[in-house]
Write a protein that binds this DNA or RNA. Structure first.
Lengths: 231, 231
DNA sequence: GTCGGCAGGATTGTATACGGTTGCGCATAC
DNA sequence: GTATGCGCAACCGTATACAATCCTGCCGAC
């Protein structure tokens, strides 16, 4: 409600970037998909100038990669990058959850419950992409509650990248049953149990990584040199 | 060596962004300074298109703020933002220093020593801006040694913002005597003392914050309303 | 003398044009 | 049938042009 329509009049490239980011987050745009400037511009009714600005923003968030004269593609995080992203989340999110527990308000709790409910509804409606995005928003909401804008922005970026990582490395497509962890987190937060929330978040992130297939296999459409093992 | 000259041929906006970032980091560009697109473009001999790309990159790193129809200005972090930046650093850097201690190599140590020496030389030569930048590079180098690209990028951004914060809130201009902490860190790193490095880094960051004047005074070229205390 | 409005200049937002590179496909030779 | 070289089409990089907006200074009215 606050990030969709409000910014439209402010910066015309923001809606393009947000729309693309959401599509990536919901797995409607797959890793490696090319994003030609002309095509995107035609879809949104804007010129390449504003599309470029949006793509640059996404590139800075590591959601797309920009290669000179090759255009923009949805990023394909490597296994190494996947590990790094979750290591960074492990450094940031548990302590942030603790802060959130200490200053959470009833209206915050309501919003978190609404997130979980919406996530359940999306899963029940057979929209796993939407559920995944809402699951990410749950984490972002916790960072927002912690009232740390800077860390919240880092976490937002990391969660978006996590969505790409999940698209590439998730072990079993059907198993998106992480709502239990979010329920437990909600419980700890509602009781202002900072230490508990910190531990739960730590464990939750470990669980997430354990559901990824991060053996040293390269990303699916890997670079040919590595694929053929020739120097 | 890897981020200065190599990227020049790759992306023409990168050198502009790097030059501006360095000038900000070295306090040659002060918070609040306007950066007109035409002027910057003329300096670098490029058109506004590429300048805009550079400014957007810097805006994403929070070194400049972009306001619609108002142009780009060097950012003026608020007290709140200053606190947040150092809180984020406190979450990221100590653990990163520990990782660095565990995997540091002799050549890494040489590079760190060179950084410290250069920093001393800059101070002796009466170039506090250069010394500050080198001091920041010391932290970035540690993150690089830890071999965590993602976290390294976050830290790089946070250190650049720290430079702006120091420009605004440093208590005594003359006292840039933090080289002792870096020496102690180097010692711990050279002995692969992860726990020691983590503690030293934590303390170092606390010391840094204590040298800032973060009472709830607004930023120096604050909004006129607040500056004059008139409603 | 002060306030309000208006016009001019300056600066940004967006679109488009042009040049260069890449990559693909086809035709031809072997 | 396969390989090689050429040509074309698509796309990106950059510059520039035009429109919209904002700031500033001046002028007139009260």
């Amino acid at each position: 409600m606050d990030d969709r329509s409000a910014a439209v009049a402010e910066d015309s490239s923001a809606p393009v970037a947000q729309w693309l980011a959401r599509a990536i987050h919901e797995h409607r745009l797959h890793p490696g998909t090319k994003l030609p400037e002309d095509e995107v511009g035609e879809i949104f009714g804007v010129s390449r100038t504003v599309v470029r600005a949006a793509l640059q923003k996404l590139a800075h968030d590591r959601l797309v990669v920009l290669r000179r004269n090759k255009g923009a593609h949805v990023a394909q995080p490597t296994v190494r990058e996947a590990r790094e992203v979750f290591e960074a989340r492990a450094l940031l999110e548990p302590r942030t959850a603790r802060s959130a527990a200490e200053r959470i308000t009833p209206s915050d709790l309501d919003r978190l419950r609404a997130h979980i409910d919406e996530e359940h509804a999306a899963l029940a409606a057979g929209e796993p992409g939407r559920a995944l995005r809402l699951s990410g928003l749950f984490h972002i909401e916790i960072a927002r509650i912690a009232d740390q804008d800077t860390i919240c922005q880092f976490i937002t970026q990391l969660i978006a990248r996590s969505s790409l990582i999940i698209a590439l490395y998730w072990k079993r497509r059907n198993a998106l049953c992480e709502s239990h962890a979010h329920h437990a987190l909600l419980q700890a937060l509602s009781q202002h149990d900072g230490a508990g929330a910190e531990d739960l978040m730590k464990g939750h992130l470990v669980d997430l990584v354990s559901l990824l297939d991060l053996r040293n296999t390269p990303a699916s459409p890997r670079s040919l040199h590595e694929a053929l093992g020739r120097p």
